[in-house]
């Protein structure tokens, strides 16, 4: 199965490992993720003002690019891109007048016909079935205890979320299917601090401290998540957390796709651990999920 996929800017920079591991794991499941040609930044923050059409141009332009490929689905990996694309898609589907205005403005593009569906990669996996994923596992993640983390945009608001907005289970289900143990973390839906990471890193550190310390104290070895911004705030900001809370103990952050790549026993370079702030390698070696040849983290 071939499907257009939208990487988004973060996956090309801070989230490299997310992209690499996703493409490689998808291939194991016979899914070819084809990067959307000429994609533009999703807009990053969905416009909440419905008459501010300018800020819906970017997402809709991406959907037109999918339509031009004569495809009807677009897969995303980043939760923010997913939410932004889906919201704009819904807006124009429900409001033909606005769609017309936008189509006229983008006269160099073909008119958007509203028949593209925006999917998160997790949804695609659920469609395929976690049982099928199980069949491909070469190295179950036995002995690894994980704390799933959703953040905001993957499940909220309700009409755009991929799972129950209050008690989501999709990450738990996938993690268990891969052979790991999971713990319940009441902070799994707590905001990571999002863009405050730019101007209020201390606030982000406060939030991260709660989320991560709970996970650590509950016996989790690492956090598993699906968003490069959450990952940045919960991984890279551990430097600030440590500064603010001397008792804090570092904990690795992993993308669900990295877990899949591990369980499918893919090449090390598909994992992209080298740009993590908290190096997950020692943990994974201890759990015998990685062999010794893996290079150490290059830079922080």
């Amino acid at each position: 199965m071939k499907i257009p996929y939208f990487p988004g800017c973060s996956l090309k920079t801070i989230g490299e490992g997310f992209e690499k591991s996703a493409i490689a794991s998808a291939a194991v499941l016979d899914i070819e993720l084809n990067e959307l040609p000429r994609w533009v930044c999703c807009g990053t923050v969905s416009s909440l003002t419905t008459d501010d059409l300018m800020h819906h141009l970017a997402p809709v332009r991406n959907l037109i690019r999918v339509q031009d490929l004569e495809e009807t689905q677009l897969v995303t990996l980043c939760s923010v891109c997913y939410s932004t694309l889906k919201r704009s898609n819904t807006l124009v589907k429900n409001d033909p007048e606005k769609l017309k205005t936008m189509n006229q403005f983008m006269y160099r593009e073909s008119d958007y016909q509203c028949n593209v569906k925006v999917l998160h990669f997790l949804e695609l996996l659920r469609e395929i079935g976690f049982d099928k994923i199980k069949e491909k596992i070469k190295k179950p993640l036995r002995g690894l205890t994980l704390s799933p983390y959703y953040g905001c945009l993957l499940v909220r608001p309700k009409e755009f979320g991929i799972d129950d907005p209050e008690t989501p289970t999709i990450l738990q289900a996938l993690t268990k299917a891969l052979g790991a143990d999971v713990i319940d973390n009441p902070y799994q839906l707590k905001c990571c601090g999002s863009y405050h990471t730019v101007d209020k890193p201390n606030l982000v550190a406060d939030l991260g401290y709660k989320i991560l310390t709970y996970a650590r104290n509950s016996g989790a070895d690492a956090l598993v998540l699906s968003c490069p911004l959450c990952a940045f705030n919960l991984d890279n900001r551990q430097r600030e957390i440590k500064r603010q809370y001397p008792d804090f103990v570092e904990i690795p952050i992993l993308y669900f796709t990295q877990l899949m790549a591990l369980a499918f026993d893919l090449d090390e370079e598909r994992l992209g651990f080298d740009i993590h702030y908290v190096d997950p390698v020692p943990l994974l070696k201890e759990k015998q999920l990685l062999i010794d040849s893996l290079p150490l983290i290059k830079e922080k």
Binding site: C41, T44, L57, A58, R61
Partner: peptide, 11 residues
Amino acid sequence: ARCVACNTCTK
């Protein structure tokens, strides 16, 4: 980062 992909520049 403020680009909204309106494509006015290209035009």
